[in-house]
Design a binder for these strands. Structure first.
Lengths: 226, 226
DNA sequence: GTCAATGTATGACAAATATCATATTTTAAA
DNA sequence: TTTAAAATATGATATTTGTCATACATTGAC
């Protein structure tokens, strides 16, 4: 069993407030998993009795809408925690979490986390701040959905993907989403998404080579996203 | 100075976890305000150094989008708290709060609230749960914006208004929003909103008499909202 | 390697929604 | 009360976006 002390999740998440003793406690009760690309971590409607620490990989949080389309609400990457909201609310999850690449995650049972809440105020505050940050993002995201055109949202999303997940050595976006997934992020039909990507490609904003997307004109994209 | 002990906000919000001593402390440091319809409680970009308790009235939380339209993110009513997110995040607010009716609010300084966080775990947990609930609502709202048509969202919103703010004796919606505000809630142009209201009126889903809107066929509206 | 399945791409068209113009009604100020 | 301003309503039209059809490309199982 590996220690939690040097874990990337500890370094970047609310867990950085935990002391040595607490980390040892956590290491003793955690369960480690490997999750293959495409597999679920949890599904909409499930009860999540703890928190997942993402050691490696990226996953999507999505919600199936009434018309059968999967809306991607958020992408989560290594160093972050998953499932906090449902665990704290004592509700079933409102979102499904699906791996976009092979992942390494650890599960910490609810009981343990609630113990930390009681003993360690800094940890509580960190979790609170994270959730407040999520809430702000979600509200801003909602306004984008309501007020921006599909083209603006696509421009915004491409920039977000580069800023958040970085580039390969050849300059292309590190994260590779299918067109359907990208459409699911911006909330549009797959065909509309493909059409706009083609347009961006033709007007020199981006380059599309096979599955790889490269942002060529950041400034113009930024202006387009407003 | 009135005591906080019998206040409606204490009854319905996270504050119910506070004990007598804490309530007395709070009563001693609070500031009470009257806010007239149309006035701001705070504006997007301001620093909020505390929490507002809404004793009476309803306000809208909105965000000005790049195209100049005001998107209403949430309505908040008496018994609820306001400004928690920004206070906890230590960030300026991302939303403006404007009174939809005359309001009575109390302001509790941040220092006091942080003290309660340290001393009273149940209070911390309550605040956390509230924010988690807000996050869930916001995510769900975002998916509606992204996936539903304007008609579906209008149906959904009318039902929400009746469920949340109730009816007058004549059966009409208690809360009266202008067409522009209603359009701002569902994220559409004012004219589109007006047109759909007319359509709902003609097809017998609702009745419009002057400013008053009455829901006539809940079930059909529910089916329409999916 | 072959082939089916899936993903990507594009055209044609339909539907939804925004925009602009203008009329009518309501509200509030003088 | 009168009058200007604002809100509501509706038509005409343009634009955006979705849907359906189809073609082509890529992938993975056998």
């Amino acid at each position: 069993m590996s220690k939690c002390e040097q874990c990337i999740v500890r370094e970047f998440s609310s867990l950085k407030a935990l002391n040595k003793d607490e980390l040892i406690k956590m290491a003793n009760c955690k369960t480690s998993y490997t999750i293959k690309k495409g597999e679920n971590i949890f599904e909409e409607g499930e009860t999540v009795n703890g928190i997942y620490c993402i050691k490696d990989g990226i996953c999507k949080l999505s919600k199936l809408s009434a018309n059968g389309k999967d809306q991607i609400v958020k992408l989560v990457k290594s160093g972050e925690l998953l499932g906090q909201r449902s665990m704290i609310s004592d509700e079933v999850t409102n979102l499904s979490a699906v791996a976009l690449e092979d992942m390494e995650v650890c599960f910490i049972p609810k009981k343990e986390i609630l113990g930390f809440f009681n003993e360690n105020n800094q940890f509580s505050m960190n979790v609170m701040k994270t959730i407040c940050g999520d809430l702000r993002e979600s509200d801003d995201h909602m306004v984008s959905m309501a007020q921006k055109s599909v083209k603006e949202r696509l421009a915004e999303t491409l920039l977000y993907l580069e800023d958040t997940f970085g580039k390969n050595e050849d300059g292309s976006l590190y994260i590779q989403l299918s067109r359907e997934e990208l459409a699911g992020m911006i909330g549009t039909a797959t065909e509309s998404c493909i059409r706009l990507l083609s347009e961006f490609n033709k007007t020199g904003l981006i380059d599309i080579t096979g599955k790889k997307i490269t942002i060529l004109d950041r400034n113009k994209l930024k202006r387009m996203a407003e």
